[in-house]
Design a protein around this nucleic acid. Structure first.
Lengths: 109, 109
DNA sequence: TCAATATTTCATTAATATTTGAAATATGGA
DNA sequence: TCCATATTTCAAATATTAATGAAATATTGA
């Protein structure tokens, strides 16, 4: 992933509400959650949420699809993985201490 | 690492110059680099650099020490690892796709 | 002590991001 | 069609962050 996209993603995640949105959506996988439920869960206004969702979507961290009158948002795990890979490999060149980490299925040097 | 510290770190890294500072410092390990050399390498003004360095230091991503008339900055790899671990485990619950990733030495499920 | 170097601090300005609430748009059901 | 629901858009007000350059501080060496 190119640095400019990583930068956008970091900026998108560097906000309380938005990081919560990601945390809420990741475990739901591709099913995602509609805007209304996200707003209710996180107790934010509809318009405020819409603003934050669009930041995340523009950064490429979320996808959205329309289903009847709802708009469903889902985390893009490949994008998230791209950001993490960048931090680990291209930014920190394996120098970060992630020994406490439980990896899903990564190659080990 | 607590979410509020992760948030600070993400905000600190979500800036072009600051991400470059981290990328420059990580490979130098604890030796670090003095402010002047960082400024020269990245072609930023001394005062501008000072501003960015303090953001990174306040976020806990850098340490600084004084050596004669220089101030030497070094990346805090444990802090970087903490951010990455958070994204991988507490935020994304192992759901991120990091299969392209080469991990230094992490446990694999 | 004086001058040079290294870095930070400060005030100012400029640029961006966020919040808020009202209005607009779109969809589905009675 | 009309109404209720779901979501986005927009403009205005605030708040936060960043860039700039001059001045302050500290350290070393002549």
């Amino acid at each position: 992933m190119e640095q400019s996209r990583v930068l956008k993603s970091l900026a998108a995640m560097a906000h309380d509400t938005r990081l919560e949105i990601v945390r809420l959506l990741v475990p739901r996988g591709d099913d995602g959650l509609c805007a209304g439920e996200i707003a209710q869960t996180l107790e934010v206004s509809a318009s405020g949420l819409s603003f934050h969702l669009s930041q995340l979507e523009h950064a490429g961290l979320l996808t959205s699809r329309k289903e009847s009158r709802h708009v469903i948002y889902a985390a893009d795990r490949a994008a998230l993985g791209g950001v993490i890979s960048y931090l680990l490999n291209d930014c920190c060149a394996g120098a970060a201490d992630v020994s406490g980490c439980i990896m899903p299925s990564a190659k080990t040097r």
